[in-house]
Design a protein around this nucleic acid. Structure first.
Lengths: 156, 156
DNA sequence: CACAATTACCCACTAATCTCCACAATGATA
DNA sequence: TATCATTGTGGAGATTAGTGGGTAATTGTG
């Protein structure tokens, strides 16, 4: 499972070196590629090992073509899903379309999220973290009973 | 299964080069053709490997001739379904009727959607993606309980 | 049967991508 | 502190994918 966050850089060709620590687990055993796609609501990219992604495809397959919401989600996720295969140096090439979606500049951040990594532009990421912290603090003082009950058994 | 999106161009003869990566899986084993038809609600074309299309035909066969909506759907899909066979360079020729339906200009986009590809005019596609993203963001902040429950087990 | 229009085949050009090698930065070891 | 190993970065060259267009084959029409 993926966790932690890594400051990385994107070279002029749009290539991104993955942390050695996670290279093996990113390549599904079959020697397969990685799947990179866009997030449907945040300006970041999602990076899945092929095996994980295939599970999602199975679920997407079952969404209805007649429900606009499900149709939209399916189109966004699948339509942007790109096979990225790692070169001999452990790098992947991020397609221009995807880079634009996440407003990626030279320095970016790879954020572990269990079954996937998120790829954020470093600056966007910092801003987002600050915002999220602010919201959490506010909610903590406000005290939402329903929410805290749901999060209770996290036993943080 | 088909995924990702590809910026391609339509040449003066109305030909379209398919991505090498998917050429084999587009041709059903029997060396057969591809079936191209129109989408019944969006300005795009649908491109199926023959084998996949035949499954759809089976289902269309079972639609009622007495229900106007089913009748309409059947007529639209079947009536526009065209056999396109790939030439030695991996290109197919899109009939003029279909090109018009999707308002195809020179640059278009091929979008993988599991059992088929969608063919959009590049510009139309961009506009649509932007619109859909906007809707998704709005819904994310609004927080629709019912929807999020249905999409919960996607475990993105 | 001849002609025109369309479609398929072939070759060549260009631009993108992959492979490979080299170097720099970092950290570990003696 | 010097040496070595490992990791991240940059870039040259080879390869391949996508495109354009000439020519031959096929189709349909008068």
């Amino acid at each position: 499972m993926f966790r932690g966050s890594f400051a990385l850089s994107l070279d002029d060709k749009g290539r991104l070196t993955l942390p050695t620590r996670y290279r093996d687990s990113l390549l599904s055993e079959n020697g397969g590629a990685l799947i990179c796609t866009i997030d449907h609501k945040d300006p970041c990219l999602l990076l899945y090992p092929l095996s994980e992604w295939e599970e999602i495809e199975e679920k997407l397959k079952r969404l209805s073509s007649f429900n606009p919401q499900e149709q939209r989600l399916k189109r966004l996720l699948l339509g942007h899903a790109t096979d990225c295969d790692m070169d001999k140096n452990g790098r992947i090439l991020l397609p221009a379309t995807l880079r634009e979606h996440a407003h990626l500049s030279k320095s970016l951040r790879l954020v572990g999220q269990l079954n996937k990594f998120e790829i954020w532009d470093e600056e966007t990421w910092h801003r987002r973290v600050a915002e999220d912290m602010a919201v959490e603090q506010e909610m903590a003082t406000a005290g939402d009973a329903e929410l805290s009950e749901r999060l209770q058994d996290l036993s943080l």
